[in-house]
């Protein structure tokens, strides 16, 4: 699909909204409104928005856990307000305030989110199998990190997705860090994509800070999957701007990451570089950029107020949720 100017603007807006939602969630955590924890996605917005934009609503999405999936969710048409309300523990949240930080929006193909890293593999395999059985050319977008790639479940699912030619696009957000452990101490090769080719799954490595590169790679894989040509894998090399979990130490093993190191990373900020590109190409004006920024801020302020004003769930719902009728 050739991206039109409106598409580029949608992608830029969605990245800005993702960053603002990330920031307000961090603020909410610091103010005690967010009840659990939060794993910031700052630095991986280009991957999330590039991967999940312009999919079909009935395509299944397993979002990456960074940002608890926000970039993917917003790009796929999910509600930021439902996301934030869930984090605030409110009945208006996407899971009625019961999960605390998971997100589900089946109408938009987001069937749920997990707490255990690496469970993406068997579960997405199930969604891919269902997509194939349905016969409606749906695809499953299944995202994991370099940390998740260390799980043995990857083997079982990569293998069978290839044997059964399932319509799955495996996407690895490789930011080089699994909590405090660098990839160099967790994986023997340079590219995680090599794991896929071992199962005869075509794989590419892209610059995860470049939204267009990500989008083109994912769309090519999506088209193949829709055509019944089986799974693909995309490894996106990204940067993790923040600590693993907000408030946790920002360390490599036990050594703090330096300010210089972080500053160097932030020169690659995908929102800033994409903005510069769109300004240069004349797709956006400075006034447009300002309006997008202001609109996103206003949206977040409104969301925050809505979530603050929302009720906490009535505990009587608990008994209705364990088992279906």
């Amino acid at each position: 699909m050739k991206l039109k100017n409106d598409d580029l603007i949608f992608m830029y807006k969605t990245m800005v909204r993702t960053r603002k939602l990330d920031e307000i969630t961090i603020k909410g955590l610091q103010e005690g409104k967010v009840l659990a924890f939060y794993h910031s996605s700052q630095g991986s917005e280009a991957l999330a928005v590039g991967a999940a934009s312009f999919l079909r609503p009935d395509d299944y999405l397993w979002a990456h856990h960074r940002g608890h999936g926000i970039g993917y969710i917003l790009a796929k048409g999910g509600s930021g307000r439902d996301f934030l309300a869930e984090h605030y523990g409110k009945a208006t949240g996407s899971c009625l305030g019961v999960s605390g930080f998971h997100f589900a929006d089946p109408e938009n193909g987001a069937l749920g989110a997990a707490g255990t890293i690496g469970s993406v593999f068997p579960m997405s395999l199930g969604w891919g199998l269902a997509a194939k059985k349905h016969g409606r050319q749906q695809v499953t977008i299944a995202c994991f990190g370099d940390g998740g790639s260390n799980r043995g479940t990857l083997h079982e699912a990569f293998n069978l997705s290839s044997v059964w030619k399932l319509p799955i696009v495996w996407i690895c957000d490789n930011n080089g860090m699994a909590q405090y452990t660098p990839i160099t101490d967790a994986y023997a090769k340079d590219d995680i994509a090599d794991l896929a080719t071992g199962y005869d799954i075509p794989a590419v490595v892209v610059d995860g800070m470049d939204i267009i590169a990500v989008h083109e790679a994912v769309q090519a894989a999506v088209e193949k999957a829709r055509a019944g040509e089986g799974p693909s894998m995309i490894e996106a090399k990204t940067k993790r701007f923040r600590e693993h979990s907000i408030g946790s130490p920002d360390v490599v093993h036990n050594q703090p990451r330096t300010d210089e190191e972080i500053a160097e990373m932030k020169k690659l900020d995908p929102i800033i570089t994409f903005k510069a590109k769109l300004l240069e190409q004349g797709v956006l004006t400075k006034a447009d950029v300002e309006k997008i920024n202001n609109d996103a801020e206003a949206e977040m302020a409104e969301m925050d107020q809505f979530c603050v004003d929302s009720q906490i769930p009535d505990p009587s719902i608990l008994n209705t949720l364990v088992y279906a009728e």
Partner: peptide, 15 residues
């Protein structure tokens, strides 16, 4: 592949 047998069941049941 027990994790996939279970995962395939859970994933496809959801749909």
């Amino acid at each position: 592949s027990e994790t996939v047998i279970a995962g395939a069941a859970v994933g496809s049941a959801m749909t």
